[in-house]
Design a protein around this nucleic acid. Structure first.
Lengths: 331, 331
DNA sequence: AATAGAATTGTTAACGATTTCAGTTTAGTG
DNA sequence: CACTAAACTGAAATCGTTAACAATTCTATT
């Protein structure tokens, strides 16, 4: 492996000069810099990042942490997040991916090992991790889950508003009896989406029927079960909002199994707009959650934080969008 | 930040002794080791990995490279792979995730930065990257795509055999007119699956009708288009093998759009067994491809390679399995 | 009690970069 | 032409660790 000293020898300068030339220091004459850069290229020089890190105390790695990758994290989620991030991230930074539930030893999470950390958070349980990162003084952006703490940079979708818009649309189509299949208890997104649902009903002066609040946990199976329960009701709802697309797919399966026509008998609305949403039969009307945009924006904020550690933390909202497809009937 | 020298001062020994004690060297007396470990724990010592890396020339990071994460990589794929790997990987190793199409500068790929590399390969085009890694002498395991080169550790599913088994099953159900929607041209998996398809037909002494070979590219849309073409045929097939589940979903949509009953009029078989396969209507009969197992096994081989660089490369096959569900009719 | 040999521990020099401070050119000014 | 400021370059220290080799302390043997 060739080092700056080798280059220095060939160029007839000190290794200090080489270091400066290669790092764009203004102290170096143009001709010297050009010569050194040429020689470095010719010799296929690649800097040793361990040495760099040791002295600059920067690790050149960004950590992306999910609540869990073993369970509960829908697949498209992870991909879109990684896409959004690598899209922005400088090529000689490393992006590491981990589940928070997989780090048993917080001591590995220190400034020394991560220049910055992105947390794709789904649950309050992540807070222990988040506060550890904060305490360690590592630049941090929390994505996807709205935080109470204004001291942490936070990028989220406006779930509540997005759901309200979707339910408003269903009401506009004539629906008066609307049910919800709720998300995983304890997840902030669950309560936000439920709020959006209720906001719309209240704004439309519609009754909140306790029978129409079915519980779920974001899994396909729970959507199936909740829908089955809803279908067994004396007074069936005409439209059901599912707190994510996976549950909507489960719900659609339940309808299929019980020979209930969608949207003829029951209308369905999902949340997320996963890739398959447009390919269910009929195609699922849902709220698009822009994970890639959230991640991209989050990464941008993190970079900002790396450059200017004193940047004031803010809470940024990314707009959701209603994707009108074929599962909501006009009645 | 506290260093081994701080510990040495407190313990009244040299920093070398501390280093040895903390790294399990047999040269250290038990009482000394115990004392040092106790002090280190009390002082919340965490080793500086940059310094460690600099002198040991190990980076403590493993690179996972996909052909692309921008396109063509189905979501569940990536998640399952990461799951399988993190499951095995030691906690103080970092796992970085990247698209090969995202590395424009091969010079960043060196032994210095990666202790080992896993390539989740889909296309021949990855070869340039793969051979760069090999040339650099970085321990390497290629997953998912079968390589010609016996000099590289390779873990793959037995696609061909898996498909043959599935088609055999369809033939057993009475199907005589079978079509295939092929995968993305240039992908090894495409030709392997096609081969398995043909193997079965030949073994069953069935004719190979050129009209029944429709081209696709693994995308949902291409499945839709190919199925539409197949449906316009004078003499329609009774069963269609789709080279992956995404295309099968597209194909199912095409049937739905053309009011063709599945499996009443046309039977469908997929490949991969993605999470949604069991929730299509009707549920998709498909071949399960064990990505998590492949990744896990691959990671194990890589660890083996890290310990014993001279381990003989081998080609390992992981078994696929036929998931019989509801899209193949008995006729 | 002396001593060889084994068992521990310590000294010092890397590893490959950046950075501080000092030294040397070069250019500009009177 | 001398002198000073600006521009550039170099020497040496430093980052936190491991490792080669040297030195010391035990243990057991004579």
């Amino acid at each position: 492996m060739i080092t700056i000293k080798d280059i220095a020898r060939v160029a007839g300068v000190s290794h200090t000069t080489v270091s400066r030339a290669l790092n764009g220091s203004p102290l170096i004459k143009k001709v010297t810099r050009d010569k050194i850069e040429r020689i470095a290229a010719e010799m296929n020089y690649v800097p040793n990042y361990s040495a760099k890190s040791l002295v600059t105390k920067r690790s050149f790695t960004i950590g992306l942490f999910f609540s869990s990758i073993e369970q509960g994290t829908s697949a498209s989620f992870l991909v879109d997040a990684i896409k959004g991030i690598t899209h922005i991230l400088d090529e000689n930074y490393n992006l590491t991916v981990n589940g928070i539930d997989g780090v048993h030893n917080f001591s590995n999470i220190q400034p020394q090992r991560f220049d910055g950390i992105l947390v794709m958070s789904q649950s309050d349980e992540d807070n222990a991790f988040i506060y550890h990162v904060k305490k360690m003084g590592i630049p941090l952006v929390v994505l996807n889950r709205q935080l109470e703490d204004p001291g942490i940079m936070n990028v989220v979708a406006n779930d509540r508003e997005g759901v309200k818009e979707a339910i408003d649309y269903a009401v506009l189509q004539g629906h008066r009896k609307l049910a919800i299949i709720e998300g995983k208890p304890g997840f902030k997104s669950s309560s936000e989406r439920k709020q959006g649902f209720m906001d719309s009903l209240i704004a439309g002066r519609l009754a909140l029927n306790p029978d129409y609040f079915a519980s779920g946990d974001y899994s396909i199976e729970s959507g199936y079960a909740a829908m089955t329960a809803l279908l067994s009701l004396e007074d069936q709802p005409t439209a059901v909002f599912c707190s994510n697309d996976d549950m909507a797919i489960g719900a659609m399966n339940a309808c299929y199994a019980h020979k209930v026509d969608v949207p003829g008998q029951i209308s369905l609305i999902g949340f997320d707009d996963i890739m398959f949403a447009r390919y269910t039969n009929p195609a699922l009307t849902t709220v698009r959650k822009p994970i890639a945009e959230i991640s991209e924006l989050g990464m941008k904020m993190l970079i900002q934080l790396l450059i200017q550690p004193e940047t004031e933390p803010q809470q940024l909202f990314v707009k959701t969008g209603l994707m009108v497809r074929d599962t909501v009937a006009k009645i």
